[in-house]
Write a protein that binds this DNA or RNA. Structure first.
Lengths: 185, 185
DNA sequence: AACAGTCTTTACTGATTGGTACAATTTGGA
DNA sequence: TCCAAATTGTACCAATCAGTAAAGACTGTT
């Protein structure tokens, strides 16, 4: 009765999508077993810590993705304007023009915030820091750069909320281009 | 064993705070009975529709509050600059400088979004419309005014997410004053 | 003081929750 | 080919879930 099809790393994106759709509390084990195709036995084999460990793993993978695709390019690129532009596009794609939620943002508003407080904090802090680096290389002083970066991350999260509330992906894209211009101008 | 202490309207603010802290799914009836001091019997007496009706009532009350304190002043004031300034302050107070969540925004990101879609939609649509009215009276054309209003509501919701994620009320206040200046300038 | 209506308590339902235990099975390596 | 480790299915647990039912107690009116 064992098939060894799945690896832990294959399951995590599925878990991520489940948590995005149902939230942490709403993602019941029955939903998870159904969507992953894995029984409780397998699930608890891969994640002995249960749901909490699954969510941790998902948050870690999200953090790795952003570190590689967004934060590092912003920090290390020699062409900051290009880096800002291309990471903005990557973010728009990642969130599927506002049709996809930011799991970290959703967790921040949820009552599970405290449980994952440090990972949530790190995610946004790293984002603001990386963007601030790029802006400083673009000529802004440290204070102005951090202010602008803060404003940009706020705009992204806000646009995700409003776009979903109004079921209006165009609004998200509009907000992203507006932000992109404001950063590079 | 009946005391007739509570009225339906007295319970709603308590329910609102519970939903804010626990979310819709997280607000179990046991939490609700405990915090309201009302047994299930009383709860189902006031809200025959159960939790869903409680949430509806809360959303309606929130909408009424914003209509009276925010939307109407923005729409009807003869001094739009003053109206924008004072409603910005009212919003900052309402959200307790980012320490308090926007329940509607949280619902928008939650999987209960579809269940309350129309009320969530109306809440933000009314906000943007009202703010756009005030901005037009300030001299902006319709398109520019709506764009600015959109941007402002996005900034508020985003600031709520980030302020809570970073546990940083100062960030929320900073975002609000920045926005206030940007609207009136 | 009796009444009807409002409110509350209590006990209960069946379903579902997250989690555990463990045997059965498959797998890769020697 | 055989064995230990990895993987999985199933049955089970106590706790909690939202919701129901109905009898009791309080209220104002007459």
């Amino acid at each position: 009765m064992a098939k060894t099809i799945a690896e832990r790393s294959d399951i995590i994106p599925v878990l991520a999508e489940i948590f995005r759709e149902h939230g942490f509390e709403g993602a019941s084990l029955s939903v998870i077993t159904e969507r992953t195709g894995l029984g409780k036995g397998s699930l608890y084999h891969f994640f002995p810590g249960g749901k909490a460990e699954m969510a941790q793993a998902v948050l870690t993978e999200i953090d790795n993705w952003f570190e590689e695709k967004i934060y590092r390019p912003l920090r290390e690129s020699e062409n900051p304007a290009f880096a800002i532009r291309s990471t903005c596009r990557a973010v728009t794609d990642y969130f599927n023009s506002g049709r996809r939620i930011c799991l970290v943002g959703a967790f921040a508003l949820d009552n599970v915030r405290d449980r994952f407080a440090s990972q949530i904090n790190d995610y946004f802090a790293a984002w603001i820091t990386a963007l601030s680096h790029a802006l400083q290389k673009l000529g802004h002083n440290a204070e102005a750069a951090t202010g602008l970066a803060e404003e940009a991350v706020i705009a992204i999260q806000g646009a995700l909320v409003i776009a979903r509330a109004l079921d209006n992906p165009a609004l998200f894209e509009r907000a992203m281009t507006r932000m992109e211009k404001q950063l590079i101008a």
